[in-house]
Design a protein around this nucleic acid. Structure first.
Lengths: 336, 336
DNA sequence: TTGTAGGCGTTATCAT
DNA sequence: ATGATAACGCCTACAA
């Protein structure tokens, strides 16, 4: 280790033969009309020479804000959250903000560290698909926007949601139009608003059609192997066999297809399977999955927009983004 | 907005009837023997009452370090990087550090912002699977550990690697033992060290066996659709047909399987397919993919350990972590 | 056992 | 057009 330490604005000032204030003005980009072109150039030169980079901690302390938002996600295991991030980061960048990702350690559980877990200094929080109380200790009192969450939850944080119920409706109608009447719902075994909405939307939509019946709802963790087991359980039940398997999620649908193949049941010849999310998995499979595409990037963007509004003192809009059925090869006419 | 602002340690001190210094000692956990139990309790009570949370910017400025590391990844689109994060975060937490994720905007490209893109104040950088120059402007001069990168790259950052070449070797031997002799290599079209290693390992290993021949190497972006097209191209070439398709990556292998199914070729009956990474995709597919499991979490952990060593002034170890072939259903005896 | 005081590096206000 | 100066909130000698 050479004893070299990072150069400060003071060092730049000395090197350029000016004062710290001038350096700050020039590098802050607000010198036109206040500092001569000559000195500005000298400052920039000196800064470049020394490899000067402003100390973020000092800047944040002085300004009282960090221009950084925290994006809390329950897991990074699928690309949905990656797309959320992308959208949020894009909007953030347009406003000179950064986004820091915090994958919440497996689901719930309040923070253990008395000082909270988010170490980065942040101005606000965007929480995606989280139970409200899972945020305990993260953004205590910071401006908060929730994605994919109960808009009527206590706390009254602005919410950006997907039209999940409408998506389920589209799937159900698609299957009904194909002649299906006997359904099984493979539900995500996760205590999140979005899955509760899915469940009630499935029930409601099938209720509307005389003759259509929801034979059973089977719950499964969001993993392929678990979903396969769940479908095996569901199909082992006595009674008439379903012709359509409506899955809460593409991963569940993938597991369902595996189970069916194992049972020698053709998809979609004997059973139709639908997913939700339109992950890249949906087209990696064979047959490709009929599913619902979520505008994840727009969700992230809208979330960031709402947070920026909040930070600006304007009441944030919130709202619901439309989703779209993507019919592919895993659904077909009901047999018989 | 009520005009309420966040309480400072000063406010806590006032509320508890003590000085800032005492507050700092108590909340910093280094009061035993220096502050009476009674006052300590009073301080904690006041802090809790006010909902006090220390200002990170100020703390970081004062201490000159943030106890935060930046983990730079090329993309979040697959779970490999999620596992890296998990491992790194675990080790970090054991040392009172935090980890902030920075998904580098699509591959390469130096930072556009003159002040660099990583807004969070950080002590060091762990870069995963990145070209060395893709880091320009991120951690300028900060302690750096590279994962999955050329250990002999200029710059001499410590490197934590996977035994990628050995993994390829295991796959090749597995296929050779099954009687395969005509190979096609489906290579990732990414300019990264790990893919260069894979390519040369494939060539080297097949070279060692008389009669074994690498018919062709086809390149493809790391996406299912691209991989499918690439395999269609490769199989349309004149000459003998391969019996084994060695893919750089599970996603490529998934695309390969789709292409083969489209062509009516049985896997593994007529062609064996192998992947690399053991993503959850590998077991979501049908047939399940023979692939190589990477200890991603350990890579992240080792990377963090190396960074902590670096920060402590100790030369970081670096090293290579073993990988393991996971034979599944997509490979079988060579036909004929 | 507790309080006082100084400074971390930056930006912004006010003189010059 | 530029420079001196004062904060931002925290930690930590050192003094009492």
């Amino acid at each position: 280790m050479t004893g070299s330490t990072r150069p400060t604005s003071r060092d730049v000032a000395r090197a350029a033969g000016v004062s710290q204030a001038t350096v700050s003005l020039v590098l802050g980009g607000k010198w036109p009309g206040r500092v001569s072109e000559r000195t500005a150039a000298a400052v920039r030169e000196a800064a470049g020479e020394l490899g000067y980079r402003p100390n973020l901690a000092a800047r944040n302390l002085r300004l009282g804000r960090t221009r950084t938002a925290l994006l809390v996600v329950p897991a990074l295991t699928n690309e949905y959250f990656a797309r959320i991030y992308t959208g949020a980061a894009r909007v953030a960048a347009e406003h000179g903000f950064g986004v820091v990702l915090y994958p919440s350690p497996e689901g719930v559980g309040p923070a253990r560290d008395p000082f909270g877990s988010a170490r980065a200094a942040i101005d606000g929080v965007i929480a995606s698909s989280m139970a409200a109380d899972a945020l305990a200790g993260i953004g205590d009192g910071l401006p908060l926007v929730m994605l994919d969450s109960d808009p009527d939850a206590p706390g009254g944080a602005p919410t950006v949601n997907l039209a999940v119920a409408d998506g389920i409706r589209q799937v159900a109608r698609h299957l009904l139009a194909l002649g299906h009447r006997r359904f099984v719902h493979l539900a995500g075994e996760v205590d999140a608003w979005t899955f509760r909405v899915r469940a009630s939307a499935v029930a409601a939509e099938l209720d509307r059609v005389p003759g259509a019946v929801l034979l059973h709802t089977e719950r499964s963790a969001l993993e392929v192997a678990a979903a396969r087991d769940a479908v095996l359980r569901a199909l082992a039940r006595p009674g008439p066999r379903p012709t359509a398997l409506l899955c809460d999620d593409d991963i569940l649908a993938a597991g369902a297809c595996k189970a069916l193949r194992g049972l020698g049941l053709a998809v979609p010849g004997e059973l139709s399977v639908s997913g939700f999310d339109d992950l890249s998995l949906a087209t990696a499979m064979d047959p490709e999955l009929t599913t619902v595409r979520l505008p994840a990037e727009e969700v992230g963007a809208a979330g960031m927009t709402a947070l920026l509004a909040l930070l600006g003192g304007v009441p944030a809009p919130g709202g619901e983004l439309p989703v779209r059925l993507v019919p592919r090869a895993s659904t077909g006419p009901a047999p018989r």
